[in-house]
Computed example of a mutant assay.
Amino acid sequence: MRVVIVGASGNSGTALLRRLRSEPDLDLTGVCRRLPAPAGPYADVTWHSIDIGADDATDRLTEVFTGAGAVVHLAWQIQPSHDQRRLYRTNVLGSRAVFRAAVRAGVPALAHASSVGVYAPGPKRAFVRETWLRTGVPESSYSRHKALVERMLDEVESDHPTMRVVRLRPGLIFQRDAGAEIARYFAGPLLPASLLRFGRIPVVPRHPGLRMQAVHADDVADAYLRVLRADVRGAFNLAAGPVLDADIVGRAFHGVPLRVPGLLLEGAAALTWQLRLQPVDRGWVRLALKAPLMSCDRAAGDLGWRPATDAVSALRQLLAGIADTAGAAGPPLTEDPGRPGRFGGLLRGRLPGTGNPY
Protein backbone atom coordinates (compact mmCIF):
# COMPACT_ATOMS: atom_id res chain seq x y z
CA MET A 1 0.00 0.00 0.00
CA ARG A 2 1.24 3.47 -0.86
CA VAL A 3 0.90 5.95 2.01
CA VAL A 4 1.26 9.68 1.39
CA ILE A 5 2.31 11.74 4.42
CA VAL A 6 1.69 15.48 4.15
CA GLY A 7 4.02 17.32 6.50
CA ALA A 8 6.36 14.33 6.67
CA SER A 9 9.45 16.28 7.78
CA GLY A 10 8.07 17.74 11.02
CA ASN A 11 7.90 16.46 14.60
CA SER A 12 5.16 13.85 14.13
CA GLY A 13 6.10 13.19 10.50
CA THR A 14 9.69 12.29 11.34
CA ALA A 15 8.54 9.88 14.03
CA LEU A 16 5.98 8.37 11.66
CA LEU A 17 8.62 7.77 8.99
CA ARG A 18 10.80 6.03 11.58
CA ARG A 19 7.88 3.76 12.45
CA LEU A 20 6.59 3.00 8.96
CA ARG A 21 9.92 2.36 7.24
CA SER A 22 10.11 -1.02 8.98
CA GLU A 23 6.80 -2.11 7.42
CA PRO A 24 7.81 -3.99 4.24
CA ASP A 25 4.42 -3.71 2.51
CA LEU A 26 4.21 0.09 2.74
CA ASP A 27 5.50 2.42 0.01
CA LEU A 28 6.07 5.87 1.52
CA THR A 29 5.59 9.23 -0.17
CA GLY A 30 6.38 12.47 1.66
CA VAL A 31 5.01 15.94 0.93
CA CYS A 32 6.47 19.12 2.44
CA ARG A 33 7.41 22.64 1.37
CA ARG A 34 11.18 22.23 1.80
CA LEU A 35 12.62 18.78 1.20
CA PRO A 36 14.84 17.12 3.80
CA ALA A 37 18.19 15.52 3.09
CA PRO A 38 17.55 11.88 2.06
CA ALA A 39 19.18 10.36 5.15
CA GLY A 40 18.02 8.65 8.33
CA PRO A 41 14.22 8.42 8.50
CA TYR A 42 13.94 10.54 5.33
CA ALA A 43 15.70 7.93 3.17
CA ASP A 44 13.78 5.52 0.94
CA VAL A 45 10.88 7.99 0.68
CA THR A 46 9.53 9.50 -2.55
CA TRP A 47 9.48 13.25 -1.91
CA HIS A 48 7.38 16.05 -3.42
CA SER A 49 7.90 19.74 -2.64
CA ILE A 50 4.44 21.34 -2.39
CA ASP A 51 3.28 24.39 -0.48
CA ILE A 52 -0.20 23.28 0.58
CA GLY A 53 -1.32 26.90 0.98
CA ALA A 54 -0.50 27.82 -2.63
CA ASP A 55 -3.22 28.40 -5.23
CA ASP A 56 -2.23 25.32 -7.24
CA ALA A 57 -1.92 23.01 -4.21
CA THR A 58 -5.14 21.05 -4.80
CA ASP A 59 -4.17 20.13 -8.36
CA ARG A 60 -0.61 19.18 -7.44
CA LEU A 61 -1.71 17.17 -4.41
CA THR A 62 -4.33 15.33 -6.47
CA GLU A 63 -1.58 14.07 -8.78
CA VAL A 64 0.47 12.84 -5.83
CA PHE A 65 -2.51 11.25 -4.05
CA THR A 66 -3.81 9.35 -7.09
CA GLY A 67 -3.35 5.62 -6.51
CA ALA A 68 -2.53 5.99 -2.81
CA GLY A 69 -4.12 3.67 -0.29
CA ALA A 70 -4.08 6.31 2.46
CA VAL A 71 -3.19 9.94 3.10
CA VAL A 72 -1.95 11.13 6.49
CA HIS A 73 -2.29 14.89 6.92
CA LEU A 74 0.20 16.22 9.51
CA ALA A 75 1.12 19.62 8.08
CA TRP A 76 0.50 22.52 10.46
CA GLN A 77 2.20 25.87 11.00
CA ILE A 78 2.60 27.32 14.51
CA GLN A 79 4.92 30.25 13.80
CA PRO A 80 5.18 33.13 12.96
CA SER A 81 2.61 34.04 15.61
CA HIS A 82 2.66 37.71 14.54
CA ASP A 83 1.49 36.77 11.03
CA GLN A 84 -1.98 35.29 11.45
CA ARG A 85 -2.68 35.52 7.73
CA ARG A 86 0.20 33.17 6.98
CA LEU A 87 -0.95 30.71 9.66
CA TYR A 88 -4.53 30.70 8.31
CA ARG A 89 -3.22 30.20 4.77
CA THR A 90 -1.30 27.07 5.72
CA ASN A 91 -3.47 25.58 8.43
CA VAL A 92 -7.00 26.22 7.17
CA LEU A 93 -6.69 26.80 3.44
CA GLY A 94 -3.89 24.24 3.18
CA SER A 95 -5.96 21.61 4.99
CA ARG A 96 -8.86 22.35 2.67
CA ALA A 97 -6.56 21.71 -0.31
CA VAL A 98 -5.44 18.39 1.20
CA PHE A 99 -9.04 17.27 1.81
CA ARG A 100 -10.21 18.31 -1.66
CA ALA A 101 -7.29 16.52 -3.30
CA ALA A 102 -7.97 13.35 -1.33
CA VAL A 103 -11.59 13.40 -2.51
CA ARG A 104 -10.64 14.07 -6.14
CA ALA A 105 -8.03 11.31 -6.11
CA GLY A 106 -10.48 8.82 -4.61
CA VAL A 107 -8.24 8.03 -1.66
CA PRO A 108 -9.93 5.31 0.44
CA ALA A 109 -8.52 6.44 3.82
CA LEU A 110 -7.67 9.88 5.22
CA ALA A 111 -6.05 10.33 8.65
CA HIS A 112 -5.87 13.86 10.02
CA ALA A 113 -3.69 15.23 12.83
CA SER A 114 -6.09 17.10 15.07
CA SER A 115 -5.30 17.97 18.69
CA VAL A 116 -6.61 18.45 22.20
CA GLY A 117 -6.82 22.07 21.04
CA VAL A 118 -10.00 21.29 19.10
CA TYR A 119 -11.98 20.86 22.31
CA ALA A 120 -14.00 23.52 24.14
CA PRO A 121 -12.84 24.39 27.67
CA GLY A 122 -13.30 21.43 29.96
CA PRO A 123 -12.43 19.75 33.24
CA LYS A 124 -8.97 19.49 34.74
CA ARG A 125 -9.92 16.80 37.29
CA ALA A 126 -11.89 14.50 34.97
CA PHE A 127 -11.37 13.12 31.47
CA VAL A 128 -13.48 13.88 28.39
CA ARG A 129 -14.23 11.47 25.59
CA GLU A 130 -14.08 12.16 21.86
CA THR A 131 -17.69 13.40 21.94
CA TRP A 132 -16.75 16.54 23.91
CA LEU A 133 -17.78 19.83 22.27
CA ARG A 134 -15.35 20.82 19.48
CA THR A 135 -15.48 24.61 19.47
CA GLY A 136 -11.94 25.21 20.67
CA VAL A 137 -10.69 27.88 23.05
CA PRO A 138 -11.65 31.15 21.32
CA GLU A 139 -8.65 33.20 22.50
CA SER A 140 -6.23 30.79 20.78
CA SER A 141 -5.83 31.03 17.01
CA TYR A 142 -4.27 27.55 17.05
CA SER A 143 -7.39 26.19 18.74
CA ARG A 144 -9.78 28.10 16.46
CA HIS A 145 -8.00 26.77 13.38
CA LYS A 146 -8.10 23.19 14.70
CA ALA A 147 -11.85 23.47 15.30
CA LEU A 148 -12.46 25.03 11.88
CA VAL A 149 -10.47 22.33 10.08
CA GLU A 150 -12.38 19.59 11.88
CA ARG A 151 -15.65 21.16 10.75
CA MET A 152 -14.39 20.98 7.16
CA LEU A 153 -13.51 17.35 7.77
CA ASP A 154 -17.05 16.73 9.05
CA GLU A 155 -18.35 17.83 5.64
CA VAL A 156 -15.92 15.53 3.85
CA GLU A 157 -17.03 12.64 6.03
CA SER A 158 -20.71 13.39 5.44
CA ASP A 159 -20.45 13.93 1.68
CA HIS A 160 -18.15 10.96 1.02
CA PRO A 161 -19.23 8.09 3.30
CA THR A 162 -17.10 5.53 1.46
CA MET A 163 -13.93 7.34 2.48
CA ARG A 164 -12.58 6.17 5.83
CA VAL A 165 -11.87 9.36 7.80
CA VAL A 166 -9.90 9.22 11.05
CA ARG A 167 -8.72 12.06 13.27
CA LEU A 168 -6.16 11.68 16.02
CA ARG A 169 -6.24 14.18 18.89
CA PRO A 170 -2.99 14.00 20.86
CA GLY A 171 -1.85 16.10 23.77
CA LEU A 172 1.56 17.77 23.68
CA ILE A 173 3.91 15.74 21.45
CA PHE A 174 7.45 15.36 22.75
CA GLN A 175 10.66 13.74 21.52
CA ARG A 176 14.35 14.52 21.82
CA ASP A 177 14.79 15.33 18.12
CA ALA A 178 12.19 18.10 18.43
CA GLY A 179 14.25 19.96 21.05
CA ALA A 180 15.57 22.69 18.75
CA GLU A 181 12.21 23.10 17.01
CA ILE A 182 10.07 23.37 20.14
CA ALA A 183 12.52 25.79 21.75
CA ARG A 184 12.34 28.02 18.67
CA TYR A 185 8.55 27.90 18.43
CA PHE A 186 7.61 28.21 22.09
CA ALA A 187 10.52 29.77 23.99
CA GLY A 188 12.55 31.89 21.63
CA PRO A 189 16.22 32.91 21.53
CA LEU A 190 16.46 34.24 25.11
CA LEU A 191 15.84 30.85 26.75
CA PRO A 192 18.96 29.78 28.74
CA ALA A 193 18.57 26.26 27.35
CA SER A 194 21.98 25.05 28.49
CA LEU A 195 20.80 25.18 32.12
CA LEU A 196 18.44 22.30 31.35
CA ARG A 197 21.45 19.98 31.01
CA PHE A 198 21.39 19.62 34.78
CA GLY A 199 17.87 18.18 34.63
CA ARG A 200 16.51 20.93 36.85
CA ILE A 201 13.70 23.47 36.55
CA PRO A 202 14.20 25.77 39.55
CA VAL A 203 10.65 27.17 39.69
CA VAL A 204 7.50 25.54 38.31
CA PRO A 205 4.38 27.74 38.00
CA ARG A 206 1.40 26.31 39.87
CA HIS A 207 -2.19 27.02 38.84
CA PRO A 208 -5.30 24.80 39.01
CA GLY A 209 -5.62 25.04 35.24
CA LEU A 210 -2.02 24.09 34.50
CA ARG A 211 -2.66 20.36 34.25
CA MET A 212 -1.73 19.06 30.80
CA GLN A 213 -1.26 15.79 28.97
CA ALA A 214 1.68 14.78 26.81
CA VAL A 215 2.65 11.84 24.63
CA HIS A 216 5.88 10.72 22.97
CA ALA A 217 6.07 11.19 19.20
CA ASP A 218 6.91 7.51 18.71
CA ASP A 219 3.69 6.53 20.47
CA VAL A 220 1.72 8.88 18.24
CA ALA A 221 3.39 7.25 15.23
CA ASP A 222 2.36 3.83 16.52
CA ALA A 223 -1.24 5.05 16.71
CA TYR A 224 -1.13 6.16 13.07
CA LEU A 225 0.18 2.75 12.02
CA ARG A 226 -2.67 1.08 13.90
CA VAL A 227 -5.14 3.38 12.14
CA LEU A 228 -3.69 2.38 8.77
CA ARG A 229 -3.97 -1.30 9.64
CA ALA A 230 -7.43 -1.30 11.23
CA ASP A 231 -10.85 -0.65 9.72
CA VAL A 232 -11.67 2.21 12.09
CA ARG A 233 -13.26 5.63 11.67
CA GLY A 234 -13.79 8.71 13.76
CA ALA A 235 -11.69 10.35 16.46
CA PHE A 236 -9.13 9.02 18.94
CA ASN A 237 -7.62 10.86 21.90
CA LEU A 238 -3.94 10.14 22.54
CA ALA A 239 -2.07 10.88 25.76
CA ALA A 240 0.23 9.17 28.23
CA GLY A 241 0.09 9.32 32.01
CA PRO A 242 0.64 10.92 34.36
CA VAL A 243 -1.05 14.27 33.90
CA LEU A 244 1.67 16.91 34.08
CA ASP A 245 1.15 19.49 36.83
CA ALA A 246 3.40 21.59 39.07
CA ASP A 247 3.81 18.91 41.73
CA ILE A 248 4.76 16.12 39.32
CA VAL A 249 7.07 18.31 37.23
CA GLY A 250 8.60 19.81 40.37
CA ARG A 251 9.43 16.39 41.81
CA ALA A 252 10.82 15.13 38.51
CA PHE A 253 13.03 18.16 37.88
CA HIS A 254 13.88 19.27 41.42
CA GLY A 255 11.84 22.46 41.12
CA VAL A 256 9.80 24.47 43.59
CA PRO A 257 6.11 24.94 42.67
CA LEU A 258 5.14 28.61 42.88
CA ARG A 259 1.49 29.64 42.79
CA VAL A 260 0.89 32.12 39.97
CA PRO A 261 -2.48 33.75 39.10
CA GLY A 262 -3.79 33.01 35.62
CA LEU A 263 -4.12 36.72 34.83
CA LEU A 264 -0.43 37.19 35.60
CA LEU A 265 0.54 34.30 33.31
CA GLU A 266 -1.61 35.68 30.49
CA GLY A 267 -0.46 39.25 31.03
CA ALA A 268 3.21 38.31 31.06
CA ALA A 269 2.80 36.31 27.86
CA ALA A 270 0.91 39.14 26.15
CA LEU A 271 3.44 41.82 27.13
CA THR A 272 6.58 39.87 26.25
CA TRP A 273 4.99 38.74 22.98
CA GLN A 274 4.08 42.29 22.01
CA LEU A 275 7.66 43.35 22.81
CA ARG A 276 8.95 40.51 20.57
CA LEU A 277 10.85 38.95 23.47
CA GLN A 278 9.33 35.49 22.97
CA PRO A 279 7.03 33.88 20.35
CA VAL A 280 4.04 32.69 22.45
CA ASP A 281 0.99 34.95 22.60
CA ARG A 282 -1.70 35.08 25.28
CA GLY A 283 -3.83 32.56 23.42
CA TRP A 284 -1.39 29.74 24.12
CA VAL A 285 -1.55 30.39 27.86
CA ARG A 286 -5.33 30.52 27.70
CA LEU A 287 -5.36 27.21 25.84
CA ALA A 288 -3.10 25.60 28.44
CA LEU A 289 -5.38 26.79 31.25
CA LYS A 290 -8.66 25.79 29.59
CA ALA A 291 -8.04 22.68 27.44
CA PRO A 292 -9.66 19.60 29.02
CA LEU A 293 -8.00 16.36 30.02
CA MET A 294 -8.72 13.51 27.61
CA SER A 295 -9.79 9.92 28.09
CA CYS A 296 -7.88 7.54 25.80
CA ASP A 297 -10.18 4.55 26.36
CA ARG A 298 -11.28 4.42 22.72
CA ALA A 299 -7.70 4.26 21.43
CA ALA A 300 -6.97 1.45 23.89
CA GLY A 301 -10.14 -0.48 23.05
CA ASP A 302 -10.46 -0.05 19.28
CA LEU A 303 -6.79 0.27 18.32
CA GLY A 304 -5.12 -1.68 21.10
CA TRP A 305 -2.96 1.43 21.62
CA ARG A 306 -1.07 1.99 24.82
CA PRO A 307 1.84 4.43 25.14
CA ALA A 308 5.25 2.86 25.68
CA THR A 309 6.70 6.06 27.18
CA ASP A 310 5.15 7.89 30.13
CA ALA A 311 4.62 11.66 30.03
CA VAL A 312 7.41 12.51 32.48
CA SER A 313 9.97 10.47 30.52
CA ALA A 314 8.82 12.09 27.29
CA LEU A 315 9.22 15.54 28.86
CA ARG A 316 12.64 14.56 30.18
CA GLN A 317 13.72 13.56 26.66
CA LEU A 318 12.42 16.82 25.22
CA LEU A 319 14.20 18.98 27.78
CA ALA A 320 17.45 17.11 27.14
CA GLY A 321 16.92 17.77 23.44
CA ILE A 322 16.36 21.47 24.10
CA ALA A 323 19.52 21.65 26.19
CA ASP A 324 21.55 19.93 23.46
CA THR A 325 19.82 21.76 20.58
CA ALA A 326 18.84 18.37 19.20
CA GLY A 327 17.27 18.19 15.76
CA ALA A 328 17.10 16.25 12.53
CA ALA A 329 17.61 16.73 8.79
CA GLY A 330 13.98 17.73 8.27
CA PRO A 331 13.82 21.53 7.82
CA PRO A 332 11.30 22.07 10.67
CA LEU A 333 13.62 20.19 13.04
CA THR A 334 16.75 21.99 11.89
CA GLU A 335 19.52 22.85 14.34
CA ASP A 336 20.50 25.88 12.23
CA PRO A 337 21.39 28.68 14.72
CA GLY A 338 20.34 31.35 12.24
CA ARG A 339 16.68 30.38 12.02
CA PRO A 340 13.96 32.61 13.53
CA GLY A 341 13.64 31.75 17.21
CA ARG A 342 17.37 31.08 17.65
CA PHE A 343 19.94 33.56 18.98
CA GLY A 344 21.69 33.69 15.61
CA GLY A 345 18.39 34.65 14.02
CA LEU A 346 17.93 37.40 16.58
CA LEU A 347 21.35 38.83 15.69
CA ARG A 348 20.16 38.97 12.09
CA GLY A 349 17.05 40.93 13.06
CA ARG A 350 14.67 37.95 13.05
CA LEU A 351 12.56 38.69 16.10
CA PRO A 352 10.58 35.96 17.95
CA GLY A 353 7.20 35.30 16.39
CA THR A 354 8.18 36.87 13.07
CA GLY A 355 9.60 35.42 9.88
CA ASN A 356 8.93 31.95 8.55
CA PRO A 357 10.87 29.39 10.62
CA TYR A 358 9.86 26.41 8.44
Results as ranks from 00 to 15, higher is better:
167 R>S: 15
78 I>R: 13
68 A>Y: 10
199 G>N: 07
102 A>S: 15
346 L>D: 04
87 L>W: 08
198 F>S: 08
17 L>D: 05
150 E>D: 13
15 A>V: 11
119 Y>P: 04
35 L>F: 10
79 Q>C: 01
62 T>R: 11
22 S>R: 14
18 R>L: 05
173 I>K: 02
353 G>L: 07
97 A>Y: 02
180 A>E: 02
159 D>F: 09
331 P>Y: 03
282 R>F: 03
52 I>S: 12
32 C>F: 07
250 G>R: 04
346 L>A: 09
85 R>E: 15
180 A>R: 07
123 P>K: 07
287 L>M: 14
3 V>K: 07
320 A>V: 13
157 E>P: 00
198 F>R: 12
206 R>N: 15
138 P>D: 02
50 I>D: 12
297 D>W: 01
103 V>Y: 03
105 A>D: 06
313 S>I: 11
31 V>E: 04
238 L>C: 02
150 E>L: 10
343 F>T: 11
349 G>T: 05
258 L>I: 15
91 N>Q: 14
227 V>H: 10
131 T>C: 08
340 P>I: 00
24 P>Y: 04
46 T>N: 06
102 A>G: 13
14 T>P: 02
258 L>H: 10
270 A>S: 14
307 P>C: 14
17 L>Y: 04
265 L>N: 12
280 V>C: 09
316 R>L: 09
63 E>D: 13
328 A>K: 06
3 V>Q: 05
315 L>V: 11
83 D>Q: 11
228 L>P: 03
355 G>N: 02
170 P>K: 12
232 V>N: 07
286 R>G: 14
257 P>F: 07
332 P>A: 10
106 G>N: 00
160 H>M: 02
21 R>W: 04
148 L>Y: 10
15 A>C: 12
162 T>H: 12
265 L>H: 13
296 C>D: 00
5 I>Q: 05
151 R>H: 03
99 F>Q: 10
309 T>R: 13
164 R>Y: 02
265 L>R: 14
347 L>N: 03
115 S>Y: 09
317 Q>L: 03
144 R>L: 11
188 G>S: 05
68 A>Q: 08
158 S>W: 01
118 V>H: 00
298 R>T: 11
265 L>S: 15
302 D>I: 05
113 A>F: 10
285 V>P: 06
30 G>Y: 08
102 A>D: 11
126 A>P: 01
31 V>W: 04
164 R>E: 04
330 G>L: 01
349 G>R: 06
206 R>K: 15
240 A>C: 06
168 L>K: 04
74 L>T: 03
239 A>L: 06
329 A>P: 00
33 R>E: 02
188 G>T: 01
60 R>M: 11
283 G>P: 02
64 V>G: 04
236 F>D: 09
